[in-house]
């Protein structure tokens, strides 16, 4: 019985990790959402400050506006200039 539960937990963990990898790849914005939610949750549960700061920092990093080639910002709408 315990073996079956452990096996199920391991399988669910592997499949979830793979699914999260693809969500992050296909919808990069979801990463920002994930870290923001994590930061909010850590604040609510009064988690240690370094942990909260780390989550907030990751949320900020992933929420930066995407830019063009090599961080070029001159590609508004009409392609590369």
């Amino acid at each position: 019985m315990i073996e079956t539960i452990v096996e199920t937990i391991v399988i669910v963990a592997i499949v979830t990790a793979s699914a999260l990898y693809w969500v992050r790849r296909l919808v990069p914005a979801s990463q920002g959402m994930f870290w923001r939610t994590s930061a909010d949750m850590l604040r609510v549960i009064h988690a240690p400050r370094p942990l909260r700061d780390r989550a907030t920092q990751r949320a900020r990093q992933t929420e930066k506006r995407p830019t063009g080639c090599g961080a070029c910002t001159k590609c508004g709408g009409g392609g590369c200039h």
């Binding site: 592997i14 499949v15 990790a17 793979s18 699914a19 990898y21 693809w22």
Partner: peptide, 13 residues
């Protein structure tokens, strides 16, 4: 190690 293993896991599921 990334794309193919994760897709194989999801496809297996």
């Amino acid at each position: 190690g990334t794309i193919i293993v994760t897709v194989s896991v999801l496809l297996w599921a």
